[in-house]
Amino acid sequence: MNAPAYNFAYLDEQSKRMIRRAILKAIAVPGYQVPFASREMPMPYGWGTGGVQVTAAILGPHDSLKVIDQGSDDTTNAVSIRKFFAKTAGVQTTTSTLKATVIQTRHRIPETPLREGQVLVFQVPIPEPLRFLEPRETETRRMHALADYGLMHVKLYEDIAQHGRIATTYAYPVKVEERYVMDPSPTPKFDNPKMHDCPALQLFGAGREKRIYAIPPYSNVVSLDFEDHPFERYRHDGKCALCGAVDSFLDELIMDDHGRRMFMCSDTEYCETRRALGNGAQGFSKATEAAPA
């Protein structure tokens, strides 16, 4: 039997080269989804294989890797992916947003502002922002070719007609450098403004759908909206019960069946750092009506 023996960061060199070439193309055409021959990874499709392939293709022995899922370093999937790279690449791992050189994320952008030289790698399930409006790849590809995004505006406007506001709360579409409409991955729209003019390089990997795309540093990234219905960020109107933050994206925890709830930072490292700096607990608060921040 062929004894399984694996390469640095798991992927063989040929696969890495193929992914690296796709990354360069993605950077050269910001927001355009570059097709790549995604490999089967030793974790299921839909569980971050795109992000993992991108990370494996860029990661080197001098990197310090942070992995988050839902903003947290210790959710099981984040732990599992971090362990995978610690094992296959022997790479240094960290929970510090500041110290990390490569951050792989699912569903959040850290609260701590990113800096030049860092790479943020997003795990993307459905990279095509138009997919739920038009299931055919041949059609959506033509729309991107012609920059024909009327369908997306119609969808957003139908939301307004039905609900009085744009009813998209995550995976909120953006336009990159005034050309490509792009899916920011299922991050809450609270995180959209962080993508704009960001000093770090943002790379997006969709393994099952076999696409890689990118936002170079300091790129222009605009959330789609209308003059009379401008884009607005959203966070629960509350304070973090642990660190008192009023500017972070909050998770709501249900305490009992009498409506007692508690808010805490979704970005656990941000929260811990604030607490280490002496910001204290605020106790429980009854859920208030949500309002834009």
Binding site: F8, E13, I58, G60, P61, P216, P217
Partner: peptide, 19 residues
């Protein structure tokens, strides 16, 4: 060391392309 050298060169090229 083909693996590590390629990784190091690639990061330089990627960095150049991104900036």
């Amino acid at each position: 060391d083909p693996g590590l050298s390629a990784q190091s060169s690639f990061r330089s090229i990627m960095d150049a392309m991104a900036r």
